[in-house]
């Protein structure tokens, strides 16, 4: 495949209080084998040699497991490829000459820090409110000490795939965090270890979610469509159930 010449329209904003705007950049000679973030690296290297401020974006693992890379690409969080994070999105999915619009997650609960970087510590505070199991740490128990039914293990594992990237919030018309909170709740609700604290957990996490300023779920199902781990909105039904029981 031949190299791509692309145009970028990127949201630039110095900090949370200044006014932001879109800036156009050329991204010439992009290899279709590059990831989206590598493409941005190339653009940034050129900006640096021209003494310009590089585009700020987050990344860490670059293999789809940490959830750091957060950006809305052409109107869809992480871009239009299903089940893919921005770092795993390959440039071969774009057409030569295409203009790509890149925006940060937009939500009151995710205040903007710079350019494409937003503050997602609201998720940490929701987790700290109850997304854990209180146990005394010691040596690890034997793996077969507590038996878990295969179905429950599968459901817990599906929910545990959540990497906390926030794409669900970014995609939701209400900036709701229900898919994230549902994943964290569901993951523990199916395991015996999660059982003793389930009521306190559901109540505390929902209260924190509301306090952070996320919207509520209107079941448009947009979140599951953009989730890089393809987590189903079944976890939201489970969250509703756990909350009703609490």
């Amino acid at each position: 495949m031949s190299l791509l010449n692309l145009k970028l329209r990127v949201w630039r904003q110095k900090n949370g209080t200044s006014k932001g705007a879109f800036v156009n950049y050329d991204a010439p000679n992009i290899s279709p084998d590059m990831s989206f973030l590598e493409m941005l690296d190339v653009v940034n290297e050129k900006l640096i040699t021209q003494n310009q401020e590089p585009i700020a974006f987050e990344s860490d693992c670059r293999e789809g497991i940490c959830g750091a890379c957060s950006m809305v690409i052409n109107g869809i969080p992480h871009g239009k490829e299903r089940g893919t994070t921005a770092c795993q999105l390959h440039m071969r999915h774009f057409k030569n000459g295409e203009t790509i619009v890149i925006e940060p997650w937009r939500a009151r609960a995710f205040p903007l820090i710079k350019d494409l970087v937003v503050d997602r510590t609201a998720f940490d505070r929701i987790q700290q409110a109850g997304g854990f199991v209180s146990v005394n740490t010691g040596s690890a128990p034997d793996a077969h000490a507590i038996l878990v039914h295969k179905d429950n293990a599968e459901k817990a594992f599906d929910a545990a795939a959540c990497i906390g990237c926030g794409a669900c919030v970014a995609a939701c018309k209400n900036a709701s965090a229900m898919l994230f909170v549902g994943s964290k709740i569901s993951q523990l609700a199916h395991l015996p270890q999660g059982d003793p604290e389930r009521k306190r957990r559901a109540k505390a996490m929902v209260m924190q979610m509301d306090a952070e300023g996320f919207g509520s779920c209107t079941n448009t199902l947009e979140c599951e469509a953009v989730c890089p781990k393809e987590i189903s909105t079944r976890v939201i039904a489970e969250l509703n159930w756990e909350f009703m029981r609490s």
């Binding site: 809305v72 869809i76 239009k80 619009v101 448009t220 199902l221 947009e222 469509a225």
Partner: peptide
Amino acid sequence: AQKHSVQA
């Protein structure tokens, strides 16, 4: 500025 619904 640009937002697409995937399945809503």
